[in-house]
């Protein structure tokens, strides 16, 4: 019995060995850039010094994690990360869903395509450029927005330096850049909805709102769930590039998030172990959030990532 199993496996390999060879570059990539960094992760549990190297550095257990939660700065930055994520969840996440639903109601195909082409465009512009444009628009010296405010009798607002405005600017630019592109996934889900369902509902006298509530929503709920699960994995990752560019000395108190903080601490000030502990904490929380939300989604009868 055992022998025949081995034999059939051998036959399978002789027949299909190429399939496994195809996977080698991908596996190599994973090993080199995903699994090997895990070896360096141990410095979160050591007092790493460049001279001593990873193995030579002293083992300190959970010291850095304990210090993390005693540090006032860390707790402030952690709070910033979470608050920024919540804002992004409340505003940036629903934006593409709403846009997609509205686009879906458009009957003029040419007009719809034109709008789509335009709203996908900002996604292809890099953060550096988006922030250049935003600073230009919002600047106090000659920004269009502030000029408009003055024309309508208001006073100039220091959008770029006032901590109170930071999150609004951040979320606003996020929506400007990604909301249009984000519709693609939902448009695909909407395209998959059976047209007969709508026709039947229309004959039954359901109005636009009822059709949306009872047909469209349930049909895209699965996609929304998947996007939400992916988003939950990023609760503590707010995106370095955008925030780093918008952050300056006056708004740092609210702008600094875990990624920018650990970058400054680790690579600029050389506190490798402490910064690694922050990174590990971020990853761990992200993973737990993905697993929990995936479990909940499946529990509630919806789709999961796997």
């Amino acid at each position: 019995m055992k022998k025949s199993k081995a034999q059939s496996f051998g036959r399978h390999m002789r027949r299909f060995y190429w399939l496994y060879i195809f996977m080698v570059p991908g596996l190599l990539c994973m090993i080199l850039f995903k699994f090997m960094p895990m070896y360096g992760l141990q410095i979160a549990f050591r007092d790493y010094s460049i001279v001593k190297g990873i193995w030579g550095s002293e083992w300190v257990g959970l010291k850095h994690f304990q210090n993390l939660f005693k540090s006032v700065n860390f707790l402030r930055v952690l709070k910033n990360s979470i608050v920024t994520s919540i804002f992004s969840l409340l505003w940036s996440f629903p934006a593409p869903i709403i846009l997609a639903l509205l686009l879906n109601e458009m009957k003029n195909i040419t007009y719809k395509r034109t709008i789509q082409t335009i709203i996908y465009l900002p996604h292809f512009i890099s953060w550096v450029i988006v922030i250049t444009i935003v600073t230009g628009l919002l600047s106090q010296s000659n920004g269009i927005i502030n000029n408009l405010i003055v024309t309508f009798g208001g006073e100039k607002i220091d959008f770029l330096t006032n901590p109170k405005w930071f999150r609004t600017v951040l979320i606003g630019t996020q929506i400007w850049k990604e909301a249009g592109w984000g519709t693609i996934v939902y448009m695909a889900a909407l395209a998959g909805v059976d047209v007969q369902l709508y026709e039947a509902a229309m004959i039954d006298g359901a109005n636009r709102w009822q059709r949306m509530l009872h047909i469209t929503f349930p049909c895209i709920a699965g996609t929304v769930a998947i996007m939400l699960i992916m988003k939950m994995g990023h609760v503590l990752n707010n995106g370095f590039e955008q925030i780093w560019l918008l952050m300056n000395a006056p708004n740092k108190t609210v702008a600094d998030v875990l990624e920018t903080y650990s970058y400054q601490l680790g690579l600029r000030q050389g506190q490798y172990s402490f910064a690694s502990a922050i990174g590990f904490f971020q990853s761990l929380v992200g993973m737990v959030m993905v697993f929990v939300s995936n479990f909940l989604s499946r529990r509630m009868g919806g789709k999961g990532l796997w």
Binding site: F33, P37, M38, L41, G266, L267, S276, S283
Partner: peptide, 18 residues
């Protein structure tokens, strides 16, 4: 492996050392 690849990231410093 793919899912692990999706959800896990060793972090900035370990990546840098790698």
């Amino acid at each position: 492996l793919i899912i692990f690849n999706m959800v896990f990231n060793a972090g900035m410093i370990p990546n840098y050392l790698n």
